[in-house]
Simulated assay, not measured.
Amino acid sequence: MEIVWHIKTFEALTVNELYALLKLRSEVFVVEQNCVYLDIDGKDPLALHLFGEFENQIVAYTRLFKPGISYDSASIGRVVVASDYRNKKWGKDLMLQSILAIENHFGVAQITISAQLYLKKFYELLGFVQSSEMYLEDDIPHIKMIRG
């Protein structure tokens, strides 16, 4: 069985989809990474939500923004794959789907991300280039990266 990709506006998400994606984000960004921060930051209604389902469960997710919301360029954020599925290497597929969705929905090629520093090489393989010094975001080293 393959992962099935969906892309939806905030308004198009079902209550169950919204609950599942917020649960996944909390499991990884708050619990697994031990970060106390407000994940629900008011930007979700402005985003396109790209998620992958496997066996009727949301296992991968990103939120996508048009230029001018998080950065001057389009951006990808909240990149997450459920811990039980990371061995399937769906992170690369998730990012490729996200890049394609930005190109198709926003008509732009330049994308900015705030990447966890340890994932620098992963994002470089996808065409992103470091564009800032390291900074701490929720006590985790990050770098700004740009593609396009």
Rank of each mutant, 00 (worst) to 15 (best):
G127C: 09
S114Y: 00
I76D: 06
S114T: 03
D39T: 08
Q57I: 03
E32I: 11
I99H: 03
V129M: 12
N87H: 15
N56R: 13
R63H: 11
I140W: 01
K120S: 09
M145G: 02
L96M: 15
G77R: 08
E103R: 15
R25L: 11
R147V: 00
L22S: 04
P141F: 06
H142D: 06
A74D: 07
L136I: 01
G42D: 13
V81E: 02
K120Q: 14
V79K: 01
S132P: 01
I140F: 03
L50S: 07
F51M: 12
E133G: 12
L100P: 00
V59T: 09
K88S: 11
V30W: 03
E133K: 14
N16M: 12
L126D: 07
L46Y: 13
I40E: 11
Q116F: 05
I102P: 02
R25G: 04
A20K: 09
I113L: 15
Y61H: 04
H6R: 12
Y135R: 02
G107M: 07
S26M: 06
V59H: 08
E17N: 11
A12L: 13
A101I: 03
K43C: 00
V80N: 04
Q130A: 12
E27I: 07
M134T: 15
S75W: 01
G52E: 09
Y37V: 04
L38S: 09
L46M: 14
I7R: 11
I40R: 07
D84F: 07
K23P: 00
I7V: 15
I69E: 13
L18C: 06
V108S: 14
G91W: 07
S75K: 00
F106N: 05
Y135I: 01
I7H: 04
I7Y: 06
E17F: 10
I40H: 05
E137M: 01
L21I: 13
